[in-house]
Design a protein around this nucleic acid. Structure first.
Lengths: 244, 244
DNA sequence: CGTTACATTGAGGTTTCTCAAGCTGAGTGG
DNA sequence: CCACTCAGCTTGAGAAACCTCAATGTAACG
């Protein structure tokens, strides 16, 4: 059975059998990582492409003050930028947040794969575009949304992504993120996150404990988040109808 | 003489003569735009690639509440994502902020250019990577920096970009951005921006009036901004040593 | 059964926002 | 050449959101 990375790419483009075989070969021996391990750090020379097969990782930037800002969550199936190798240095770090299985694909291998199998290249580009869209949404959240909106929006985003990659069941998704991690992602303090989560729980919109998020009232959560009603739907449509 | 777009690409990769000629042909007839004109809007089907030859534009997202968040400034020479056309809909809008000369390059034309001239493709990819880095820096600012830091950081970023594309003279750069625009970019209110700018002026770090920014004390501004001392330098190095 | 990481609570302080008014300078029609 | 207008900038005061510090609670784990 194809791994999550391949499954995800198949959602973005029709992969030939050979492409799938090549991808399988390139990702067949993942490496285990414990939580809080840096895969690569700001300032490092970019090396291989990382592909998360199981577990969660984050992209983050550490600040001189000691705090950090998380810029993206990498869920099973996600890869870090394929062509980051073009730059001389990493401008951010990547770290696991939960026990993970991760594959390193050498830059040349990846390039070769994309050259030989245009469908792979296409799928990777679409994946990157989607990531960029998420990055832009992140900016909007940080800049123009209140704390409750922000939290609700992130939870929804993660839930939607969980559904898409099949790690969500009904209204539940595993979310191995501490409140500190959420705070670093949302640009707020852990204390404040905590209070916001309580509000959300008391409003009956969600349940969240021990790494398990349950959406109790999706409509309410959507309303709180200021999720443009069409956003979710539009987003899904956008993915599917990519036809280049 | 090559236009700013071509100049910028030349900074990212060695373009062949034919490539320059093809780019020149593709960008030789720009169109004039007044300020505050949308080039393309959220929800639209992506069409041509836009290239800003003169003037400034912004990427932004409008929120239901009526406010908006700016996610990027497009300065002369900048192009919007080359492969945005792969997605079904724009997830953000692009608008001019000052009188501008802008070229539209049809998607197929652009693709053809990149196929025929690999050096163009390479330069465009590097440009995109750089943009992504800027996007990530934006997130850090919004999430983890105080207002003075944020403003200082943006001004420095814009100044550095101005220097790179040659629209800065000594310590001055034209900045046709109202305080409202700055507020929309930095996730704060115009009122607060105003007060922060006054602080920066009174500290002797900058002068800013009638669309002209002057850096009076770069060291001080850098300190205020929390600009990682190496960041600027590293960034420049990263651009230059891109050698793939 | 202590240790440890994470979550929760309270109180007070700061930053930033909101609202509302006044100011300035460039352009415009008389 | 003078009102007049309008967009953008500035100022003040009170309110709200969010942070800081510091303590306490709680579940998992060796």
């Amino acid at each position: 059975m194809a791994n999550r990375f391949i499954q995800k790419l198949q959602g973005f483009a029709d992969l030939t059998e050979e492409a799938v075989a090549a991808l399988t070969a390139a990702t067949h021996r993942p490496q285990d990582f414990k939580p809080r391990q840096d895969l690569i750090r700001e300032g490092d020379r970019p090396g291989p492409v990382f592909v998360v097969l199981e577990g969660w990782a984050i992209r983050y930037k550490a600040l001189p003050s000691g705090s950090r800002q998380i810029m993206a969550f990498l869920m099973p199936g996600d890869a870090c930028d394929l062509n980051i190798g073009m730059l001389a240095e990493m401008d951010h770090s990547i770290q696991t947040v939960s026990p993970s299985k991760i594959v390193k694909i050498a830059g040349e291998t990846m390039n070769g794969l994309m050259m030989t199998h245009p469908s792979v290249a296409r799928a990777m580009y679409v994946a990157q575009l989607v990531d960029e869209g998420t990055l832009r949404a992140w900016i909007v959240s940080l800049g123009r949304r209140g704390s409750a909106e922000r939290v609700a929006h992130l939870l929804l985003e993660l839930y939607v992504r969980g559904v898409r990659i099949g790690i969500a069941h009904d209204d539940e998704v595993e979310l191995p993120l501490s409140q500190v991690v959420l705070a670093d992602a949302l640009g707020m303090t852990p204390v404040h996150i905590n209070r916001v989560l309580q509000e959300l729980r008391q409003s009956g919109a969600i349940e969240l404990q021990r790494g398990l998020l349950r959406i109790l009232d999706a409509a309410k959560l959507t309303r709180i988040s200021g999720f443009d009603d069409n956003y979710l739907h539009r987003k899904l449509r956008a993915y599917r109808s990519s036809n280049i």
